[in-house]
């Protein structure tokens, strides 16, 4: 190895590790803070590693807040949200990609155009409607919008268009109905895209803030981000409690990421996740 190449290797790892440290240090701080007692939060000089680590903060989170319930709410909402998105979007995409009908192009254009509308414009009327039909503090108020996810439709249309029509014709010859073609030919062929969408949709729903903030005000109905922001209001400077809550909220999504890394990757490349 020449000196120059050695130098470039060294430089590469120096920069890569520096960026990694920047990315990780806040999380290390989160763990360390969550293990501190209330008194240790304000010791000077600060304790980088808590001298007497304690799980008090975690106990506080679970005792003073229905946090286990919150985790359950988040799981339930995100899973159903994802399933409905996949079902509704794949059905629409099938119609757009594989059934010829008049106005198909215009309608798809309309679907895509709605992506331009910021949620802030529609949220006030939707809040009003949800309020008047009494859906506030119902999970369904947060889950139902999953029925129309134009980006998911777009991604699946792109995927389905690449599937040769021969597959469908073969099924049709065998007398399969349109629904059976969708269910038994199309969906299996789109499995990788569906998996990618599932992972990215789950993450979006899991981390969503603005809409659930408006809809779920009852402590027993809240999702994790909303519960965390409520904790923020209550324990404004008790960072051990806030960090314990944050850490718990991260566990499921990090676990999913570790097991489904490949699909996250595809999702980002398709531009599927909002930051």
């Amino acid at each position: 190895m020449t000196l120059k190449r050695k130098g470039s290797t060294l430089l590469y790892y120096a920069v890569a590790i520096a960026v990694a440290i920047v990315a990780l240090v806040p999380f290390v701080w989160m763990v360390s803070t969550s293990l501190k007692s209330r008194g240790a939060l304000m010791s000077i000089p600060i304790e980088w590693i808590p001298e007497e680590p304690t799980l008090d903060a975690y106990r506080t989170v679970f005792e003073r807040f229905p946090f286990l319930r919150t985790v359950g709410n988040s799981l339930f909402i995100s899973v159903t949200y994802t399933l409905i998105t996949l079902l509704s979007a794949s059905m629409a995409a099938f119609a757009f990609a594989k059934i010829r009908f008049r106005g198909s192009g215009v309608l798809l254009g309309l679907y895509l155009a709605t992506m331009m509308i910021p949620t802030q414009v529609t949220m006030i009327p939707l809040f009003v409607v949800m309020n008047q039909i009494g859906l506030i503090n119902h999970y369904s108020s947060v889950i139902l919008p999953s029925i129309f996810r134009p980006f998911a439709v777009f991604m699946l249309v792109q995927q389905m268009r690449t599937i040769p029509g021969d597959y469908l014709d073969a099924a049709r010859v065998d007398g399969a109905s349109t629904f059976r073609i969708y269910r038994q030919v199309m969906l299996p062929l789109c499995a990788p895209t569906l998996a990618t969408l599932a992972v990215t949709t789950f993450m979006e729903s899991w981390n969503d803030y603005l809409w659930p903030l408006l809809m779920l005000t009852d402590r027993t109905k809240m999702t994790l981000p909303i519960a965390l922001s409520t904790l923020n209001g209550q324990y404004n400077t008790e960072y051990n409690v806030l960090m314990a809550g944050s850490l718990i909220s991260m566990i499921p999504i990090v676990l999913i990421y570790v097991f489904a890394q490949k699909y996250f990757q595809n999702g980002i490349i398709a531009g599927g996740i909002k930051g």
Binding site: P26, W29, N207, N232, L242, M250
Partner: peptide
């Protein structure tokens, strides 16, 4: 990992940092 973290959790962490 920062991308996976919800904005709420990330904001809380940074408020502390």
């Amino acid at each position: 990992i920062p991308v996976l973290t919800s904005w709420v959790a990330a904001s809380l962490i940074w408020k502390s940092v």
